[in-house]
Design a protein around this nucleic acid. Sequence first.
RNA 1: GCGGCUGUAGUUUAGUGGUAUGACAUUGGCUUCCCAAGCCAAUUACUCGGGUUCGAAUCCCGGCAGCCGCACCA
Length: 589
Amino acid sequence: MDKYEKVIELAKRRGFLWNSFELYGGAAGFYDYGPLGSTLKRRIEHIWRELYVIHEGLMEIETPTIGIEEVFVASGHVGGFSDPLCECKKCGEAFRADHLVDDIVEVADALSNTELDALIRNNDIKCPECGGDLGDAYEFNLMFRTAIGPGSGRAGYMRPETAQGMFVNFQRLLKFYRDKLPFGATQIGKSYRNEISPRQGVIRLREFTQAEAEIFIDPRDKTHPNFERFAGTVLNLYSEHGQEHGTTLQVTIGDAVKQGIIAHEFLAYHIALTNHFLRRVGISPDHLRFRQHKKNEMAHYAIDCWDAEIKTDRFGWIEVVGIADRTDFDLNAHAKTSKTELSVYIEYDEPEMVTSFVVKPEMGKLGPAFKGKAKDVADALKAMTREELEQDGITVVVDGEEFIVSPGLVKFTEETVKVSGETVVPHVIEPSFGIDRILYCTMEHAFNEEMVAVHEGRDGKESKDPKEESRIVFKLQSEVAPVQVAVLPLMTKSELIGPANKIVALVRDKGLLVSYDDSGTIGRRYRRNDEIGTPYSITIDYESLDDRSVTIRDRDSMDQVRTPIEGIEDLIYELVYGGREFKTAGTPV
RNA sequence: GCGGCUGUAGUUUAGUGGUAUGACAUUGGCUUCCCAAGCCAAUUACUCGGGUUCGAAUCCCGGCAGCCGCACCA
C-alpha cells in the first residue's frame, strides 16, 4: 500500500472523500466531499479568501457555472478545447489527426475532420505504430455541452474555468473600482472538463473547484507597490533554464526579478503569495517548487507562466496552481467578439499637445447626396490621407461600388488638440488554484504513521516489538483541521458526562467545531481523533470534579497539560487560531 | 477511447459450483479506564446486469469502478 492508497483509504473511511454515485456503481472523475472533507475544504478556501479578498482587496464575485456559447467562442474554448483524434483500426492506437498531417499542410490544426480524413486517405497515411489503416477523425471536446431553455434551446457550456466570468464583467468591475488600475476580482467555484480518462482520484476530476483571481494591471507598469513584503522570501524555482539542466534554484523573489528569471515584480509577488498560502494550509516547503512554463508549452497569449508544483508520493510533482501573465489576450478576444471596447482611460500626469490630421465629412450634404450609403462613404473618407483628399474628384469605393465625392462635401485639417490621457487594454495577472488538488496534498503531507511507545500496565497485546505500536496521525495545521477540539469524559459516567456537555457548549459558543465522544476507552478515542487530525482533546476526569480542571492533550506530541475549565473556550481558540504555544496552556501532566 | 490485471462487511481477508471464514473497526453493556487494554453481546459483505446450471461469490458475456501501460491534458 503506497501513501496515496493509505491517504485515500483513510479519507474514505473517515468521511473526507467518497466516490460519487457509489450506490449506482460510481462514475469516474467525480468525488463527494464527506462531512470532514467539506469542512477541510471550506477552511482552506477561508484562508484563501482571507489572503486574496481581505488582504489583497480582490473582491469575490459569483457568476454562472453555465456559460452561453459566445463567451467560449471568444475565449477560444469552443474552437480550441477539442482535439481531433483518429484511431488505428488494427492496433487501436489513438493519434492526434492534425499531427499526422502536420508535414503536409501549413495549418493542420485549422482543418475540419472531413478535410483531415481526405488528407489522410489521399496521402496514404498509415498508423505510425503498426502501419495499419486509420479510422475516421473524431472530436474530443473537453467541454460539457448543454441546452439552455426548452426544445433544442440555445447552446450552453459548463464553464471550463471560472476566469471567463470575470473577464466578461470587466466593465462592471472597472466601474466598481472607480476606473482605476490595478484592480481585480476573485471567484471560488466549480469548473467542468469532460476529461477523457480521469484516473488519479481527486487529482483529475471532471467537476472541480477553482479559486481564481484576475488582476487587471497597467501593461506599462508591472511593478508591485507591496513587493518589499516578499522580496526576501526564498523559493525553489525550477526555471526554464533550470529544467534544461535539471536544477532547482533557491533564490529570493527579489533576486529572481533582478536576474530576469521571473518576468516582473507583479508576477513575482503573486508567486510568493501563492507560496505563503500553500505553506499556511500545511504544504511542506521541501515538497514545493515553482516551475516555469517552457516557451513551447506556454499558451500563445502568455508572456510568463509559473506553476506551483507539489511533490506527491505516487504522482510525483503535480501542478496545483498556475500563475500567468495572460497579457491583454482575453480582454481583446471579448472586445472583438462582443464589439465592445474593453479598456481603461488613463490620465497623463501632464496633458500632451498632439497634432493630427482630421477628416470631417459634411454629413448634412453627404446625406442627401448618398442616402443610405452616406455613412459608409463618410467612414471611407475618414480613412483617407491628405494627398487622396486633395484631389479634385475623390473616388470612394463602398461595397464594390464607386462614388465620386466632390471637394465641398468633406473638410480636413491639421488639428492640435490637448490630450490628457489615453485608453489602454489592461494586462491580466491570473493566479489559478486547483482547490481539490491542494486539499489532497495537505492530506498527504499531514498523513503520518509513526511508532509510539506502548504504556506499561497493559496486558495481552502481542506485537513484534512489545514496546512500540504504530499510530496514524493526521498532522493538519490546526487552522484547517475540520474538528478543532474533542471533548472526552474519561469514562461513560453521568458525573463526568454532565461537566463534559457544559464544556462542549462553551467551546461551541466560541464558534469552534467540537466533537463529543464517550464511546470506547480513552486511548481509542485519542487515536480516533489523531486519525482525523483533531489538534486538541479535552478530557474530564474525577479530578475535574474536585478542582474544576481538565487536561488538554496535544495531538502531535501527545503531551498533556492541566488547566482550569474557566476560560477554556478562549484558550482553545487561541491555540487553534492565535498561534499560542501548547506548553503555555497549563501545567504539564 | 484501447490493452492487461483486479473487484467478498467501514477496512482487510478466507473461500474457485451447494449463500460465506477470521481480524480490526463500529454500536450497546460491565469495569475510578489517560493513549487502539479486558470481558459480554450486537450490526454489517459476495461491484452491477444478463447467460449456463437443479443450484453461481465461484464458469461465460457485458456494464461500472480501481490499478498499470498507451493516447489525451486548451
